[in-house]
Amino acid sequence: MKRTVLFLCSFNIGRSIMAESLLNAIGGDVFEAYSAGEAPKSAIHPQAAATLLNHGHSLSGLNPKSWQSFLAASGPSIDLAITLCNNAEGEMCMALSERFPVAHWDIPDPALATSEAERAQLFELVYQNLKHLIEGLTDLPEDYFGQRLADAVTRLGFICDAAE
């Protein structure tokens, strides 16, 4: 059975969408990824979409959605949630941590860039950082479950931060 991972960010239009697509591409034989946000927007950020397309990802099935849909009985069973920004805390994290382990990777928001050129560069950098972290996630031992898995995934983020 595949492990399910939910990536979380405030608006679910950039980082979390890219992480969902990356994990499904890199670890799709072992993992099934989803993404959601606290205040999801109506569409994926255009630069996130362009970055994914530039790397050969399909946008099919990728759309912003609320984290609350993953708490419903009809929602998928989640093995691990990973927050990707410091804003993805508060009510969302508290509610989710009562249901499943939550890890954190602090990924800066590339949408905050002031110019189109800088934004494109930052989305590419975020894509590469997420790819590196997700490769680390897929390399973790299969017997890592629950809080042990969440702790190991959070440490991956610290290791990545230290290497920069």
Rank of each mutant, 00 (worst) to 15 (best):
M1A: 15
K2L: 12
T4A: 15
V5Q: 01
V5S: 03
L8V: 15
C9D: 05
S10R: 09
S10Y: 12
G14M: 12
R15H: 10
S16G: 08
A25Y: 10
I26W: 02
G27T: 07
D29P: 02
K41Q: 14
A43F: 10
A49H: 00
L52Y: 03
H55M: 08
H57T: 06
G61H: 11
P64S: 07
P64A: 06
K65C: 01
W67V: 07
F70Y: 14
F70Q: 08
L71W: 08
L71Y: 08
A73N: 13
I78G: 08
D79P: 07
D79V: 08
L80P: 06
L84G: 03
C85N: 06
N87F: 12
A88C: 05
E91M: 11
C93P: 00
A95T: 07
S97T: 05
S97R: 14
E98N: 08
E98R: 14
R99K: 14
F100V: 04
W105K: 01
A111Q: 05
A111F: 00
E116W: 05
A117W: 00
A120T: 09
Q121T: 11
V126G: 07
Y127N: 07
Y127W: 08
K131P: 00
H132E: 10
I134H: 04
E142H: 15
Q147G: 02
A152F: 06
L156E: 05
G157K: 06
G157F: 07
C160T: 01
C160Y: 07
